[in-house]
Amino acid sequence: MTDTLSNQSPHSEMVPTAAISIEGVSYNYGKRKALDDVSFQVLPGQFTALLGANGAGKSTLLSLITRLFDTPDGTISIDGKSFASHGSKALAPLGVVFQQTTLDLDLSVRQNLRYFARLRGMSSSFAKQRIEETLSALEMFERVDERVRDLNGGHRRRVEIARSMLHQPKLLLLDEPTVGLDIQTRRVIVNHIHNLAKADNVAVLWTTHLMDEIWDEDHLIVLDKGKIIEDGTVREILAKNEANSVSDVFESIIIQEEERLK
């Protein structure tokens, strides 16, 4: 396996290095297969929605990408650096927003972000600047000295997104980040991340089972029972399946898969 996509192509100058490249990844829990030969790429500036029902393998895939689990089969490379050859250093260009809140509730927003900045090796002055920038972009800077415990779910989520962007990652991973949030907050977050991908050329991998979070120009990957069953732009997938919406595609794919397995 090569470390970079550009190494694979004879026209390496023309093909951007994938922000994340996953090749032939499989994973089992005992005898149960959670992921089966999964391969895909996310390019810089691309918003990729990873769609799948509960148990499809999304969380396992994210645990492998974040190196919480070791990858027994296949290769995962972030910005051209594989875990196999670079170890934990390959995680440097990665920003993550987990489904579960991972902020320290008893610390203030500023203290949480400062702690994270140190873990990412940022200097005090740069951290200060980025804390202001990322929180301001999410209209949270005025609450920088409040304890996280005193914030509501939507504001906590915004702080987590700001934290994930603090070190200017090339790949942003979000695991169902809008779960439990009201419609307005969901819309704000979905819009913000879509804009971020374009403006900052950040690759986004967004897992969800909510169809309205996926836009027509997005890259869509549909995962079912550990396998990728669709991979392309939303428009391509709609045209291929002669469907009007992602929701219709998803339902028909799932029904077809269930019938095939009967």
Partner: peptide, 15 residues
């Protein structure tokens, strides 16, 4: 259990 350890483990620091 609260997930804070995940933040540490997803940094480019060796375990």
């Amino acid at each position: 259990e609260m997930g804070s350890m995940r933040v540490l483990l997803t940094t480019p620091l060796p375990r």
